[in-house]
Design a protein around this nucleic acid. Sequence first.
RNA 1: GCGCCUGUAGCUCAGUUGGAUAGAGCAACGGACUUCUAAUCCGUAGGUCACACGUUCGAGUCGUGUCAGGCGUACCA
Length: 568
Amino acid sequence: MIVKKRDRGANDNMKKSIKNIVENAVKKAIQNGDMPVPISPDAEIEAPKIDSHGDFSSNIAMVMASAQKMPPRKLAEIIIKNIEGPDTILARIEIAGPGFMNFFINEAAWHPVLKKIHHDGDRFGSSSIGKGKRVQVEFVSANPTGPLHVGHGRGAAVGDAVANILSFCGHDIKREYYINDSGRQIQTLGRSVFLRLQEFLGESIVFPDDCYQGAYIKDIARTVLEHHKTDLDVCNEQEKITFCATFAAQNILEGIKSDLLSFGVTFDLWYSEQSLFDNGKVEAALNEFKGNGHIYEKDGALWFNTSRYGDEKDRVVVRNNGQTTYFASDIAYHQDKFKRGFDKVVDVWGADHHGYIPRLKASIEASGKDCDQFHVILIQLVNLLRAGEPVAMSTRSGEFDALCDVINEVGKDAARFIFLSRHYESPLDFDLELAKKKSNDNPVYYVQYVHARIESIIRKGKEENVAGDMTYNDQLSTVLNAPEEIKMLKILARYPEVVEYSAIHMEPHRITFYLMELASAFHGYYNKLRVLTDDPSLTSGRLYLIRAVQQVIKNGLVLLGVSAPLSM
RNA sequence: GCGCCUGUAGCUCAGUUGGAUAGAGCAACGGACUUCUAAUCCGUAGGUCACACGUUCGAGUCGUGUCAGGCGUACCA
């Protein structure tokens, strides 16, 4: 059993404390007969938008009104009467509007969060809500037929951040990249390189539309020619194409790996599609589903009865020419994921693949898994702009908006932050000029600047030797009581909840928005009040505060995979 | 045709799983650097939450329908 730490007091999570207070009051009211009907719903506590509505409010009186057959405001009065007093957290409670209960927190109740931030350090905001559940996040998984483009970058940023956040919240995370190193597109890749090679050798060729058009194909052909010409001389045409295919796929995959590395993304496992065939896993999966009747034969092909699980129609797994479809290997792959013991499997895909979800879900359900154990995050596309004008991107013409070019131009941090600055279901405009700008137009620097600026203040404080010991003491609440300081404390106290929510919904952008808000509060504070003053205890208190702000900024940036610079 | 996603300030987007008077950034306008980094801050202005019904104490949020845009709808991946 996990022992709950109570020594840091109820301020661990203010919202939960309020919830407990309200729920206990309702229980008590029922026990002593103030409320006739013995039902106690969950008390919903939320932070109102308007300051005059308190720090927290609850609608529980309105929710209970019809069941208790009492007017909401009357119920609110009863609840308040039954709240155990006196309390160090609550300053007062007001009843407002149709029956809201507005809770005003004692200012001094916010300060202990600083102690917790300093105590927990890099772990502040973490939780154990994942209960050690094993979760696999598969992302990017771009075909090794061309370099990564910005769209893949967005998927990489989201997948990696989601993995970070889940891990921080107590999940056991594995990151995986699925390599489509089998099938027709690899053959096409080989043919593309082969044709360019022929071209270099002076033969006149017709380069088909369905081949890969990009300039990188020529580069690979040139490399093959330089290093493997003698190997190829003894081969027939098909062998040459196969050689080119393998060589090119490996070459491109290395490029992908190095691009991802420079983007700060690493994987626990690179999973080869071809290995599913080599190890007989595709065949085994197909046999299993044939055996239990999910796969049947029609028109010379093998079909999976996905429509039984809500798909529009059944899907082919083996074509009448004997070749398996991509779906077939994906069935085997996902079966394998669950066989490896993951409690939950998360796939990050481009939104253009959304039509694929029902069939894959069908195959997973047919394997006896619960469909909540499988979740797909669909990433909408990225429009690459330069100073507001669209940058042409087309695989057909071979013009790539290559991820590595973007990283080289704007930097890893700016790219990642921008990718995570919107909900992934929303299309994203990525403006290269804006991403490079070192001004407040560019949110990444706005946030990073807080971290660097605080470091600078601390440095200066040390130089001037104005800083006392930065430790927590009860006097902090009398020292740190400017409105700007209380405002920051409230924002800091919210961080664990933001992380938790962003984990539950797998939405990294919530961290991004939170960091912007905290950064904004700090910049405002900085411009209004001095940290290093003539008053040693005030200076010490403020240093203690901003050190906590710096810690939370850093923790958030780490989850997003963005660095927290000490100077800028 | 059918399915999925989107529609909120001039632009780009948030909106805590149904709450009170709708929130940022950019752009616009007006201010603030002898100061711990101006890569910053303060202020002003900006709205029929695409539209119409419905559900209820209460709707940007849920339901139905309409309109507009994007994507998908293969024995491609």
